[in-house]
Computed example of a mutant assay.
Amino acid sequence: MTNSNTIEQYGAAFISHLESKIKAKEPKNLYEPINYILGLGGKRLRPILTLMTADLFGGNFKDAQDAAMAIEVFHNFSLVHDDIMDDAPLRRGKETVHEKWDVNTGILSGDAMLINSYQFFESYSPEVFKKLTSLFSKTAIEVCEGQQYDVDFESRDDVTIPEYLKMIEYKTAVLVAAAMKMGAIIADAPEEETSAIYEFGKNLGIAFQLQDDYLDAFGDPETFGKQVGGDIIENKKTFLFLKSLEYAEKEQREGLLHLYSLKPGDSKTKVETVKSIFIESGAVEEAKKEINQYTQKAFNALCDINIPEKNKHILKEFGENLMKRTV
C-alpha cells in the first residue's frame, strides 16, 4: 500500500464519517451554516493526520475518527470567526459564512461548532477522554492567543520575527501538533512518544504556515483557493514582510512601509511592487530556508519515536509532500 493511497483512504474514511455526522437539524439557520462550512472541503489535513498517527502507532484508525471530527469541527469554527474578523469574502473559493448568511449567524454557528467539537470526545473511555480534552483545551486557548497576537500585530510597527513565529505556532501549528498527538494517545503510545509526535506536528505546522505565507504572495490563483496577494492587500506583517524590512535597502524599506500604511484595498500595483521588494531584498530566499529548517526540525523529532522504520518513512514522506504543495 503506497503512502498516497493511505492518505486517500484516511481521507475517504474521514469524509464518510463526517457525512454520517452532518444532519439537517432545527433551527435551520444555526445548523445550515455549520453543514455548509464543513461541506466546503479543503485539505482535511488535520483529521487525516489524527487517523494516520493512530494507525502508524499501532492503533485502529477508526477509533480515532471522533477525535478527528473534534479537530475538524474546531478548525472550521475558528475559520468562521477568523473570516468575520478579517472581513474575508472567500474561503476555499466559495462565499464565507458571514457573507452567505450574516455576521450574527457566523458568530452563533461558530459558537455551536466549538461546543460540538467537545462532544465528540464523549465516545472515549474516561482516561482517554481526560487526556484528549485537556490537550484540546490547551490547544484551543493557544489558538485564541495566536489569533489575538495576529490582530495586535496589525497596529504595531515593531513586530519581531520571533514574535511572528510564536504567533503562527499558536494560531496554526499547535492544532496540527494536537491532531497528531491525539492519534498517538488513542493508539495508547507512551507519553514521551506522544510528546515527540507533537513536536513533529508543531514544527511541520510552522513550516506549513510559512509556506502558506509564501503561497499567498506567489501562489497560482488557479490552485490556491484564496485571493493571491490577500496578505499584502490586508497589510499583514508576514515573515516575508518582516524579513524584507530587515534586509531591504533604505529606499525599498521606506517604500514598503509606505505601501503598508495605505488602507487595505485591492490594488494590483501595490501587490506587484511589494512582491518585487520581497524578491529583491532576499526575503523570499530566507523564507524558503526557514521552511526547510522547520521541516528538518520536524524530521529530527522522529528519532525519539519507537515505531517501525517504514512508519517513520510515511510520516517523513507526508512532510515532504506537504512542502511541495501549490495549494
Rank of each mutant, 00 (worst) to 15 (best):
A112E: 07
V128P: 13
I34F: 03
E154P: 07
C144P: 05
A64P: 03
L315H: 01
T6A: 14
Y10P: 11
Y260H: 08
K316V: 00
V143F: 10
L204R: 01
D216G: 15
E317G: 09
Y36L: 11
A24L: 13
F239P: 06
P89A: 08
K324R: 14
A298W: 00
T50W: 04
D188G: 13
A283G: 01
Y124A: 09
P126M: 13
H17M: 13
R44M: 11
N116S: 15
N5M: 14
T6M: 15
A187G: 11
F224D: 13
G93S: 03
E122F: 15
F278Y: 08
I37E: 07
N76M: 04
K100H: 14
A301I: 07
K250H: 09
V128N: 14
H17P: 06
S267C: 11
V80N: 01
Q148M: 13
V174G: 12
C144S: 12
I34D: 03
K202I: 01
A248Y: 03
K312W: 00
E193D: 06
T223V: 15
I107A: 14
P162M: 06
L262N: 08
A54M: 06
T326L: 11
V174R: 12
Q147T: 07
V151N: 07
Y164K: 02
G219W: 09
K181P: 03
I84S: 01
Q209C: 09
G39C: 04
I314H: 00
H75M: 02
P162A: 05
I71N: 02
D83P: 03
K94S: 12
R325Y: 09
I48R: 03
E72I: 03
D231K: 10
I161L: 14
D82T: 02
S267T: 06
D102Y: 10
D102R: 05
S16G: 10
A287K: 03
D63A: 06
I48V: 15
E309Y: 00
